[in-house]
Amino acid sequence: MEFRYEVEGGNFSRAGHASSAVKKILKQLNVDNRIIKRIVVALYEGEVNVVAHAHKGNILVYIDEQKINIKIEDEGPGIPDIDLAMQAGYSTASAAVREMGFGAGMGLPNIKKNTDELKIASDVGKGTTLEMITYLQ
């Protein structure tokens, strides 16, 4: 199964829309609740990152019997130093993002914690792609 969602940079009232839709799909597929939580927490962190940092992005979701593969591609500033961005507490978030309850430098480490495989590729000035794989069993 494949699903695609668009994410608008800066639009916080819509942030979480894609994650919510994916959660409903996984529930319908009777995936274990604990696995659903890991998947949607990681996805939601990624979705909030696009809203917080990028101009726009796409979320591509592929589900088969074994796993869910989620690709989050954005057009935005990119990440100059991915190792630094993975460090807990490091953040470049704006005051507006912090007012929403995010921007504490916890997102990427939490995505890593909640996925079985994570790949991050980034081109400074162009954008970032996150690929997250989580096994459903």
Partner: peptide, 30 residues
Amino acid sequence: LMSDVLTLDSDNLILITGLTNTQVIRTAEM
């Protein structure tokens, strides 16, 4: 801090917050 809430593994939890925006509800949902 919703980022902190998203790191929790506990079930049957009550979230107490002074933040009122839709992301509080989205965080609770996820």
